[in-house]
Design a protein around this nucleic acid. Structure first.
Lengths: 149, 149
DNA sequence: ACCCGGAGTTCCGTAAGGGAACCCTACTTG
DNA sequence: CAAGTAGGGTTCCCTTACGGAACTCCGGGT
């Protein structure tokens, strides 16, 4: 299908998509985050083809998002989030919130998030790193940055 | 390629991917958000095939993320974000932040975000909707919710 | 010596992306 | 009023990637 590479664009969104934008990748990340860390478990949980799962895992490891960790004397491996990968989980939480809000329907959200700090069920709220006020689509101007060449 | 549909999974991340998970969709959304709203402009800006752009725009309109708005007496149209679509921009901002942090390199971020409320350059910071403290990968427990069937 | 389970690899058929050419409609210019 | 132009798509063919099932490899258990 000769998919276009996004990584060369001067856009952090495009570059991020080059790392986790392929089909299944976010769900693989979700599984690893949720504790489903082994090849066969992920494969069964998602119903993904083994071939594609192999490709995605390799790519995510290459990109430094996941780490391949042996868990036995035999050649058995688990995939763990790196710091870079854990940082991507924020994106998953925002996606989950959007799905909860706009797609969950009558039944309500399939998963709840309990925050350790306060013990309450909550969700992510994007706020400005500067002033702490909400930061939504209309709350920002986009300006060219140093890497905009 | 008979891609698997994610929408039936009991997972808000998977469902969200069914709406904006296809290749190019997030970048189309970014363009519309940034003010690139017309077919030819988006096509030229992204270098996407016209065929795929048509498919993606139709899908995003069907899903209620974009709105097709005439802007002339002639049959000319622009695509605008709906409320549902504007809410997705939070996801784009989180992706941009991740790319800025992990992929931008020497040159620095290609785009800066100025927050209206405080006038400063900042970025999104995911915080708990309950207590306002940071909410990262390790800060939450996942529990089955009402829609977990 | 045989079977098993985890972790892939190989192979084939189908569907989706890339790219260029083509089409339709409503101006506008000579 | 015939020709040209611009926006917004369609159509066509080619190549690549996904889905799915079968096969392999390796180190243990019985």
């Amino acid at each position: 299908m000769q998919r276009t590479r996004f990584g060369d664009m001067a856009c952090s969104i495009a570059r991020t998509l080059d790392v986790i934008g392929e089909p299944w990748s976010p769900l693989i990340l979700r599984d690893v985050w949720a504790g489903v860390r082994r090849f066969d478990h992920i494969q069964a949980d998602l119903g993904i083809s083994r071939k594609v799962l192999t490709e995605r895992l390799n790519h995510l490891v290459e990109q430094g998002v996941l780490e391949r960790v042996p868990y036995d004397a035999r050649p058995r491996y688990e995939y763990h989030l790196t710091a870079k990968g854990a940082d991507l989980v924020e994106m998953l939480m925002v996606m989950a919130r959007w799905g909860d809000r706009w797609l969950a329907g009558e039944a309500g959200p399939p998963v709840l998030y309990r925050h350790h700090a306060c013990g309450q069920i909550g969700h992510v709220d994007p706020r400005c790193s500067h002033c702490g006020e909400p930061m939504h689509a209309d709350d920002v101007d986009l300006l060219p940055g140093p890497g905009s060449a």
